[in-house]
Design a protein around this nucleic acid. Sequence first.
DNA 1: CTCCGTGCAAAGATTTTGCAGGAAC
DNA 2: GTTCCTGCAAAATCTTTGCACGGAG
Lengths: 150, 150
Amino acid sequence: MPNRRSDEQVIAEPNTVAALLRERGLRVTPQRRAIFAAFEGGRAGHPSADEVYRRARSQLPELSRGTVYNTLNEFVSAGLLTVVSIGRVQLYDANTADHHHFRCRSCNRLYDVHPIGANKISLTDDFFMVEQTTVLLDGFCGECASPSAA
Amino acid sequence: MPNRRSDEQVIAEPNTVAALLRERGLRVTPQRRAIFAAFEGGRAGHPSADEVYRRARSQLPELSRGTVYNTLNEFVSAGLLTVVSIGRVQLYDANTADHHHFRCRSCNRLYDVHPIGANKISLTDDFFMVEQTTVLLDGFCGECASPSAA
DNA sequence: CTCCGTGCAAAGATTTTGCAGGAAC
DNA sequence: GTTCCTGCAAAATCTTTGCACGGAG
């Protein structure tokens, strides 16, 4: 994000969430802060809704599951998070930059795979033995001519 | 890697199903034939388990949902089908050849996208407006270094 | 003050599992 | 005759929804 409005204080962490939410007309609440906080720190990973629930709850015990689901959906709509569907579970990813994922069939962990250049990805940072590649594109098909970029 | 470039010869006669099943030590039953038949014909598409259930049931009314789920899972394990996770729904695909998918955000339809050459795909057959690309690799990570046979 | 967001719990949707009888081999 | 498959139904998962209260703006 190169262009940042610096007319005011640039307070770092907790404030950013609030700013992001307000920017999209969403209210700022302790619950939302706790939920967003579940993605911070190095070990954020790709938590499921339930994992987010557990993490956020350790910080805000009254938090309810429903709120977590609602909030995650709103964060996704707002572009703060993305979703990765793995089997029948949805995993949430706070890394909204362009990247892909590698899933280990053995330990089930989900790794980020970063693009290098236009259509290449780097698999050399770690040692990955790729057995299957799944590509899912989405957008608008011919019959549903898109409104957004015509 | 993929050599079967010819046609839709992948799906075939009732007899082939039996052969395929037997080949993997699976028993051949009317239920399994009906379930497999749900993928035959031009409009096979990418049915959900429930859609398979509906289709197969029209041909074998006593069929139960549980059997459909069990069977689909076995077919996937046996390599006869593959799964595409879209949100919290799993769609089954009888096309086991190397290919990808395009999902329309408007009509929700799932189209096949065929690879042309090593790392290219063709989007020109129809008119697709791609808004997002999701790539999911899977296999074994460094820590789980694992030979395919064990 | 006015709404939106939350908690709670129940409903929904999808998939899995346990068990006894029956079919496939 | 064994063994695996099936039907049925209940359970397990994961997610959404309805409603009244309380906090954010």
